[in-house]
Write a protein that binds this DNA or RNA. Structure first.
Lengths: 204, 204
DNA sequence: GCCAATCTAGATCGATCGTTCTATAACAAC
DNA sequence: GTTGTTATAGAACGATCGATCTAGATTGGC
């Protein structure tokens, strides 16, 4: 029994993601956001509380729409060793086609906004756990299937993959070059293979 | 024939590094900086031009005092395979003892301030090349000595090492945990070893 | 048709931003 | 000691920050 919203929350959140992703939290003003979202400042505050609340919602939506979507789509669709490879190759492809050098909003948040905001830090830390868990499932399954090396624990390997993922996304923001990102990935994927030789790699 | 500086440029730059490293470029105000540097705002502008110029000088000094110092010290002092290992272990040690979670000012700059400032971007990009070149020298020498695998090109391996380095430094800011960073490193170091078995690793 | 509730746009708030100005202090050269 | 030059401290500048207020518009319930 009141006046309804004139905007679609998902659409304006996508616009907010765009600004925050490109410029970060501090360098994006509420006026920038309201312009990009095509709503008035008062509507922004009415709907999302404050700049902080908007950022948290935008970050969560970003994670859902990019990483979580990717994991949900890839993991059940192919064997674990391939899932890891496709996961990384999709991310490199996106990094190379990112003409604005936005990089990765997760990494940007982890570096810029999370360290001094417990709410942001929690979102980032929890999600890093999710990615590590995804890698861990893939590596463990791959080891059981005999397509991933047992020379290292699944725990260590999944941590290495997490580290490489973050490194790729840093480079995506500052040196998004095909030779760099694809060259970087080759030894890492081979690291998963048994010393007796790879089995199940898409790259052969 | 004029009034001399009352402050030591290196000392006040160290103070500026401290603030910028912890909070980043945007979230650090000139008043924060002047307080930490214990000089007046006018002296800051007189000596460094503007906030941007101060940041550039602070970042370059940081790179000199941490990374470049480490490379200069380690590279001539030990065989290449050990140099890589010691390099990473020092960085993990520093990451774990960083109670303020400052992470790495290079990575923080790459993510937060470099993408929209050509001057900062140049400093970061040039330095990433330096680190990659260090890894490339170590890997190439190690391959010639037979202590690093020839299964991948020195170019690819050094790119992987660069990626892992950046990943470690992202995690240092948000999840500085020993089990994570040390676990992450093990498969990466083993990646350098020949499939026939490691030779020259410090970890055995 | 009126009420209560929630939306909208735009003006406006005090605070803080990066930067500059004013006035004075400390040196070297002569 | 005077002069020229640069450094100092602190006030001050206009601009912009995140956030709120004012006023009016739009709905459902009665």
């Amino acid at each position: 029994m009141a006046r309804p919203r004139e905007f679609d929350e998902g659409a304006v959140l996508d616009a907010a993601i765009e600004r925050f992703w490109l410029r970060g939290y501090e360098a994006t003003s509420v006026r920038d956001l309201a312009d990009e979202m095509q709503i008035a400042g008062a509507s922004l505050y009415n709907a999302f509380g404050d700049k902080r609340g908007l950022y948290a919602k935008a970050l969560n939506r970003y994670l859902d729409q990019t990483f979580r979507e990717r994991i949900r789509r890839i993991e059940p669709a192919m064997p674990p060793r391939e899932a890891i490879e496709v996961f990384f190759k999709e991310i490199i492809k996106r990094s190379l086609s990112d003409k604005q050098r936005r990089g990765c909003m997760l990494v940007n948040s982890a570096i810029e906004s999370a360290p001094f905001d417990p709410g942001f830090l929690s979102i980032v830390a929890i999600f890093l756990d999710e990615v590590e868990a995804f890698f861990l499932r893939c590596v463990s399954k791959g080891q059981k299937d005999g397509v991933v090396t047992r020379a290292h624990s699944a725990s260590d390997l999944s941590k290495s993959l997490l580290g490489i993922l973050l490194g790729i996304r840093v480079l995506a923001r500052v040196r998004p070059e095909r030779a760099l990102l694809e060259g970087l990935l080759r030894p890492v994927l081979a690291m998963l293979d048994d010393a007796r030789g790879p089995r199940g790699s898409l790259s052969r």
